[in-house]
Design a protein around this nucleic acid. Structure first.
Length: 359
DNA sequence: GTATGCTTTCGGC
DNA sequence: TTACGGCCGAAAGCATAC
């Protein structure tokens, strides 16, 4: 089963202020560079009708919504996080095993509790939806299927406030009608490549043999697509107990390649990631920076350190060195945004994530 | 050739 | 046509070891 909280940030804002429910609600991330620089994070369905979507620059969205009652709000992440955490606790209760996939979605394995009965699973899904609406006034869309792939596609089938159940014997009829873009992992690039192979629907995709797909997409994605077209997926719902990476990124007041101008922000970001690291009682083995240059190209530099650490000064020193190294390797290009990333995380007691070994 | 580990890029939300 | 966030997880790409 896959549960997806509907237009989550914007729905949280509707919950906070129900009077905006009937209007287009657009939640934005302001970068702070100018009054309105930034992008749309998400919006409700009233706003989507106008073509508003995640990633659209705010100025562009404002132009489109000129003369309407649209409400533009800054993202209030802490509130969304808290709301999400309470909802995740509800979801977890119903699952034999549970996998959170970000702030607004999760997989629940309920196979055991329902004894493989899809009707039973449907009842659980209805119960979950009811409980979340009652306690949090938040709707979600749920997909039920024989595996994660089908559940995920099904949760996307009927939104918002949807419930789609696809039992094993309906998998192929369900899939065949769909466009290939509905398969997770098939974005613009893969869609384009497939259309050159005259494949638009999942049915057409299932007509391609393994060799052609592997040739076009590589061994990994190729064999994934071959199986996905047949509704096959054997990924487990895995209880993830610790994050894989921790990162913070922010936009500079102005584009620059002057270290002294970047350093205060870099230091603050290093502090922030380290606070989270310590909060989670973790150490990191890899310290990295992310630089988005003026041409909006993303660059990454990282370094694996000798011993796992949670020392703030190590993170600060290392990220500074990586920044200097980046500037040297990339002349004549100013930086627009800068970030710090910690990975190679393990718990302080020294045990690495158990899931790492089970596979 | 295969396995493994490290660094960078990709793409979802 | 311009505009332009802040996260996350995983894949890709490459080097090295056996």
């Amino acid at each position: 089963m896959h549960a997806d909280l509907d237009y989550f940030y914007a729905q949280c804002e509707e919950k906070l202020n129900p009077t905006i429910r009937e209007k287009p609600v657009i939640v934005c991330v302001y970068s702070g560079r100018t009054d309105e620089s930034g992008v749309v994070s998400t919006c409700n369905y009233k706003a989507r009708k106008f073509g508003i979507k995640a990633g659209l620059p705010i100025v562009r969205a404002k132009k489109i919504m000129e003369g309407t009652e649209a409400v533009f709000l800054p993202a209030n992440r802490p509130f969304y996080e808290e709301t999400s955490e309470r909802i995740m606790e509800i979801l977890r209760k119903y699952a034999d095993s549970f996998e959170k996939m970000g702030i607004d979605e999760a997989y629940l394995d309920v196979s055991e509790s329902v004894n493989g009965e899809f009707n039973q699973a449907k009842l659980i899904a209805l119960q979950i939806k009811q409980e979340i609406v009652q306690s949090e006034q938040i709707t979600c869309s749920i997909g039920v299927g024989p595996n994660k792939l089908i559940a995920k596609i099904a949760s996307d089938e009927n939104k918002p406030d949807g419930l789609t159940v696809v039992p094993l014997d309906e998998v192929s009829s369900f899939l065949n009608e769909l466009a290939v873009g509905r398969i997770p992992g098939v974005g613009k690039k893969a869609e384009e490549k497939l259309s050159q192979l005259h494949v638009r629907s999942v049915k057409e995709l299932s007509g391609l043999n393994t060799n052609i797909l592997v040739e076009a997409f590589g061994r990994n994605l190729g064999s994934y697509l071959y199986k996905a077209a047949r509704g096959k997926d054997d990924e487990l719902v895995k209880d993830r107990n610790q994050p894989v990476q921790i990162s913070r990124i922010a936009t500079l007041k102005s584009n620059t390649r002057d270290v002294t101008e970047i350093l205060p922000l870099l230091t603050e970001l290093a502090h922030s990631v380290n606070v989270r690291l310590v909060e989670e009682n973790l150490t990191c083995k890899i310290i990295g920076i992310i630089a988005i240059t003026e041409n909006l190209k993303i660059h990454a530099k990282s370094k694996t350190i000798d011993a796992p650490t949670s020392d703030e000064n190590t993170v600060k020193r290392c990220s500074r060195e990586l920044l200097e190294q980046f500037l040297q390797s990339t002349p004549n290009t100013a930086i627009r945004r800068i970030g710090v990333k910690l990975s190679g995380l393990s718990t302080k007691s020294g045990q690495v994530d158990l899931n790492h070994f089970l596979r």
